[in-house]
Design a protein around this nucleic acid. Structure first.
Lengths: 152, 152
DNA sequence: ACAATGTTGTTGAACTGTAAACTTCTTTGC
DNA sequence: GCAAAGAAGTTTACAGTTCAACAACATTGT
């Protein structure tokens, strides 16, 4: 049985909160994207740079990187190809697995991240951290962890 | 002055919560999209149907609808055009403003919404409402309302 | 009355994302 | 050792989004 016979509808409060969630997430995304556009980046590209910068040798296997930034492998291939033409990342063969490809951040990519990061953090604060009370912010973290803990 | 000289970095907890947020939102979206795909819809189309169904005469001005579903006008034009070829919505001239176009839901669109809604609600529950405690869920609502209340 | 300005919605091109097929290589199990 | 199965990345074709330009109409201020 894949569907319940009697749908468990959301009550008025739950529905209101669900819509607040949709609206809030959209607003946050808009602001972060708008801010990063000044640096010629979008959020997906920014996250790629962040994860590379935090990894040894500023490099990661493509599939590993894809998991961390929650992009499909296909999408990551396209995105990294574009970033490569911009000079932000480079690709090299993986020595231990000949199927593998290693993405690595260039100095230019690192410079751009260093340049964009303060403004990005500032927009995360303005869009989310500052307007929300510390208690509710902590609850938000617990809620999202619970969401992520659900197995498919 | 557009940038602060000393960026107010996020502390470890804030950073962890911010990343939980990005992960959680991505998971929720994945699940809702996957579920709606069974009905040939994506979340954007589903929301269009919802907002039309809640409006008088199941109809809304295009720009009004665009605001409610948080889509650009251009995007809405394209999306509604596609939905029109699927027979889910129709468009008619607005009597009071000759620039205007009114989008309205067809019976077929309404039938599809009625068919998809129970499964959609169920996936909202499974992805978010059920795994989160009522207190944290309420806090999530307050947090997102605070986010939306920030003026640009 | 009417020019200037703003709003509405669409268009087409360029760009980005998705899905499936495919190549190459590795791993597994006989 | 070898076939089968699986994994990594890319490619191609296509679907969807964004952006800038535009046409049509409404509103404003004089």
């Amino acid at each position: 049985m894949t569907t319940t016979l009697q749908p468990r509808w959301l009550d008025a409060d739950q529905q209101r909160i669900w819509r607040s969630f949709l609206n809030g997430v959209a607003r946050i995304n808009e602001r972060l994207e708008a801010e990063l556009r000044c640096f010629g980046l979008d959020l997906g590209e920014y996250e790629i740079l962040v994860h590379l910068s935090e990894s040894p040798d500023r490099s990661l296997r493509m599939s590993d990187l894809a998991d961390r930034v929650r992009q499909s492998r296909s999408r990551l291939t396209h995105t990294v190809a574009r970033m490569e033409t911009k000079g932000l990342v480079a690709r090299m063969a993986c020595p231990s697995d000949r199927r593998g490809v290693i993405a690595l951040m260039t100095n230019q990519g690192h410079d751009l991240l260093v340049e964009a990061a303060p403004a990005h953090v500032e927009s995360v604060r303005r869009a989310l951290v500052d307007p929300v009370s510390p208690e509710d912010f902590a609850a938000l973290g617990r809620a999202m962890d619970a969401v992520t803990a659900v197995q498919d």
